[in-house]
Computed example of a mutant assay.
Amino acid sequence: MKKNSHGFTLVELLVVIAIIGVLIALLLPAVQQAREAARRIQCTNHQKQLGLALHNYHDTFLNLPHNAVPQDSSGSMQRGCSWLIRLLPFVEQSAAYDQIVFSGDFSMQDGPSPNSVVLGQLRVPGFNCPSSPLPELETQNTNANGAVELQLVNYVGITGSYWRGGTTNVVSTSPQDNTSYGTSVYSGMIVPVNTKSRSIGLKNATDGTSNVIMVSEQSDYFYDASGNKVNRRSCGHAGRSWYGGDGTTDSTYAWTANVTTIRYPIATTGGTGNGANYHANIPLISAHPGGVLVTLGDASVRFLPETVDFSILTGLADRQDGAVLGSF
């Protein structure tokens, strides 16, 4: 006698599909969290390597790498390199560094640059956060060397605090004080060399190296006053990651590149401090939920929440304020 075979009824099939859907909905956030946790660990390692590279540079030159020197306003437009260029031999990029000519216009926007070919080929994976949704490459039309594709990084040097660190919880509401560029200060660890400042060493961190930030993140989009998503990081101007800014001698106000002054809280949005990529006071922001990773002067890496007290944030940016910081 032939037995009747039984299949799933439509109701049973729908129940199974619903159960699978619920399981996927439960598992997907956990998978995403695990992936982000892995990316955050990798980003922490990138910043740790940057911290160690800065210490190795310091061991060699007895100073930290400076970010800019005053530009030559003659027809040659000598505009200097960023601190990231100076760090190349200490992040396993000696081959590229050995080809760099320390002359010409590193911004490549006005004067000729003898480095356009090597910088167009230079890619340093450790300079990018794996969680960042921002583009890692951008094509720039240069003045004298055609179009060149340059790397954009997610890590930024800290030049100091707009206020004396640790002294105020008052947050600036001015988009860029007095001029379109904002205000440059030199109380941090990665500073220009000019008539107002000089290369500094770890000995200049009188607050203690564990109480001052050298490097942090700009690895996510900002939102402007109209709610538009904007790519506003300090490496985004001409020359991208390899240009240091103008290193001005005659004004507090200067355009900068690959460094920022702490003037606004972490992840500030709404337009404040986000005027342009070459402004001096671009806030810190991270693709990691809830805060940013920072590399301290002792080369350790910490996670600072967006809710950190603003006086602590400014205190960490100022190497010599003498403030006693709370827990962070």
Rank of each mutant, 00 (worst) to 15 (best):
V212W: 03
E138W: 08
F127N: 00
F310V: 05
G326T: 14
A37C: 01
I285W: 09
L304E: 00
R79F: 05
S94I: 11
A38Y: 12
I100N: 08
I100M: 10
D59K: 09
F303C: 09
S234Q: 12
I262Q: 01
N231G: 03
P305V: 00
T269Y: 13
L284W: 07
V259R: 04
G111W: 08
V193R: 14
H237D: 14
D105W: 10
Q121L: 09
N56V: 06
D207K: 05
R123C: 06
A280W: 14
I17N: 09
L28N: 12
E217G: 02
G275F: 11
V69R: 05
N231M: 01
M108N: 00
R39I: 12
P114C: 02
P70N: 01
A276H: 15
F106R: 02
V292R: 04
T159A: 15
S187W: 09
K196T: 14
A225C: 05
G208T: 05
A317H: 00
Q99D: 08
P305W: 07
Q140N: 09
S241Q: 13
G188Q: 06
L26M: 09
G273Q: 08
M1P: 12
T252L: 12
A144I: 05
N231D: 05
V292Y: 04
S184E: 15
P135S: 01
F102Y: 10
A30T: 12
Y223T: 01
T269G: 07
S216D: 05
V215G: 08
S94A: 15
I100K: 10
P289N: 14
G208H: 02
P89Y: 10
F127P: 06
P133D: 00
S311H: 05
P175F: 03
I266N: 01
I282L: 15
V294H: 08
R35S: 07
A254L: 02
V170Y: 04
R123P: 03
S174N: 14
L150Q: 02
H288S: 12
G227N: 14
R39C: 12
P265D: 01
G7M: 11
R302P: 07
N56H: 13
V16K: 09
T295Q: 14
E36G: 10
G182R: 03
D224K: 06
A205K: 02
A38G: 09
L304V: 04
R302M: 11
F222W: 13
Y243N: 08
A37E: 12
T261R: 13
T60S: 11
I213K: 06
R240Q: 03
I312L: 03
G290Y: 07
V118F: 06
S184F: 10
P125A: 04
L284P: 07
V294S: 15
I266F: 01
A267L: 04
N4P: 10
V153S: 14
G111K: 04
S161D: 03
L10D: 15
Q78R: 14
G104K: 03
G322M: 09
